[in-house]
Design a protein around this nucleic acid. Structure first.
Lengths: 143, 143
DNA sequence: AAATAATAGTTGATATATCAACTGTTGATA
DNA sequence: TATCAACAGTTGATATATCAACTATTATTT
């Protein structure tokens, strides 16, 4: 069998973990007291206010229980508010607070810069091929 | 800013998480009572007996404390043995037990099949480009 | 050789993730 | 409309990850 280091999926894992570590370190450096996952949820919510906790869980690849707790944290940090849902008493209406919007505004340049830094020196063609490969793998794993 | 779904690193994360989930499910289905991380450690050890716990931690992107506990589990499962190191009293000599070797032999076909399944329909050229992209990202994150 | 720094690994505290069982609510259907 | 299934979210138990502080040992410096 191939050595770990030569295995494609090992490299894939290595890449995303290093990138996450890089991003998390920058978040910390610059005094943003949130995790990458919390950021993803915040960003998803800012794109679409109608997302339920279950939707969010799926989006960031966690289960509902984890999402309950993650959102509790965002609420504790006063970045997100939970309110009664207009039509369903099962759901919550999740809204980003003023403080949350401020954080998003402040962190966005950093986030963009992280992506740019991570993708530095990679041509558009390479990137597109890579995206295509990822899509195929995603498909393969779903059946 | 782009939507989450259009962001390259989000796709990257999605890919590896789905693949992991896929592999873990197959491990479970077929009655292999180990996690993907435990498998990676076992495999790394089978490639190189001289690896220390710290080496292993770095290899699978965890810290030393996590590795201590992961190895404890492998020892409990009687897949790995800890013994005194020949030259250093700080280290352990980690060896794979007979049972461990058997597990490796049994799980290897499944592992190979998983990789094949995950990469189905991807050309060699695509794969190589993708690997190159990953390497560049890894480099970018390390400085 | 003595002092100091660096290394390998462990431990306890804490954070987070996952699972299964649960509540309450809504949707479907008979 | 009464029944039952599906759904949204929570909770407690448990597993795992991470951090910081620690011990013991080995390597380096002076």
């Amino acid at each position: 069998m191939q050595k770990l280091n030569e295995i494609f999926f090992y490299q894939l894992e290595k890449t995303i973990k290093l990138y996450r570590r890089y991003v998390q370190a920058r978040f910390k450096d610059q005094g943003f007291g949130i995790t990458v996952d919390q950021w993803l949820v915040l960003k998803a919510l800012s794109e679409n206010t109608k997302l339920t906790q279950s939707d969010l869980a799926e989006l960031v690849f966690k289960d509902k229980a984890s999402m309950t707790r993650l959102i509790e944290l965002l609420v504790l940090k006063k970045l997100v508010q939970r309110a009664a849902h207009e039509t369903s008493r099962r759901r919550f209406k999740l809204t980003i607070t003023e403080k949350g919007h401020e954080l998003i505004a402040q962190i966005t340049p950093l986030v963009k810069d992280n992506r740019k830094h991570g993708l530095h020196g990679i041509s558009l063609a390479e990137l597109q091929t890579t995206e295509q490969t990822l899509k195929k793998i995603i498909n393969n794993c779903n059946n």
